Amino acid sequence: MATAAAGGTLIIWWPAFTLGAYNAVFFDDVLTLWAVATAVLLSGAILRKREALPWGGWLALFLPSLWIVLAIVAPRTKGFPYLHYFEEVLNLVGAPILTWLLSRILLPDYAELPVHERLAAVAVTLIIGVLAFLLGQFNYLFLTCADFNVSGNNPPAHCAQGPPLSRV
């Protein structure tokens, strides 16, 4: 359970933080989710573990690829101007779902785990996502604009002025 929860939180924490700090999920976060989901999808196909997931699970693993196809065929200027909402939902909903899917595929005794343990991995991912969002919203309490600059990120609109708090 801890491994699945850790995997899910690695995917959700940064998109949730940037949504809190910048009111946006960045494309590289969506591409990270795409890479992990596609790796699990292809691994499951190669290992022939299709029975490990219901058809909806395999469809969920394909959603990040669908986002890329939509981004290519539907230009934002005229085709689908709200594609960024799909990106945000994909990341914030996709990470907990990916946690559940990874658990089903990677843990051989997954079905034998008590329901509360299976749900706990997804719950941990959701909790980390909410906490990361709040840390992004209130970044000015523990980070400065200089911290964002030093890390190579643009400072969000509501960051605190001052020298970097984290020393490199």
Rank of each mutant, 00 (worst) to 15 (best):
L101P: 03
P114E: 09
A37K: 02
G44W: 01
F17M: 10
F27D: 12
W58H: 09
W55Q: 11
A60D: 03
E87Q: 15
I97G: 02
C145G: 07
L101C: 06
T99Q: 13
A95H: 05
A35W: 06
V25G: 08
L126R: 05
S43F: 13
G20V: 00
D29P: 00
T99H: 13
L119T: 03
G44S: 03
G44L: 05
L126Q: 06
S103A: 15
N139G: 03
G129Q: 03
G129W: 04
L131K: 01
V150S: 02
I105W: 03
F26M: 05
Y85T: 07
F138M: 07
W34Q: 10
V73Y: 05
L63M: 09
R76S: 08
A123H: 04
P114S: 12
A123Q: 07
T125S: 15
R104T: 09
N91G: 05
I46N: 00
G44D: 05
L33K: 04
W55D: 05
L126E: 07
A35T: 12
L126K: 02
R48H: 08
L61D: 04
K78C: 02
F62H: 01
L42A: 13
A121R: 07
A123R: 13
L63G: 03
E88Q: 13
A146G: 02
L102V: 15
G79Y: 04
Y82P: 01
L63R: 03
T77M: 07
P155A: 08
Y85E: 11
N139C: 11
L42W: 02
L83R: 00
G20H: 00
V115A: 15
T77S: 11
L59R: 13
A39W: 03
L101R: 14
L113G: 02
F62S: 13
G44K: 01
E88C: 05
P81E: 00
F133P: 00
V73F: 10
S43D: 05
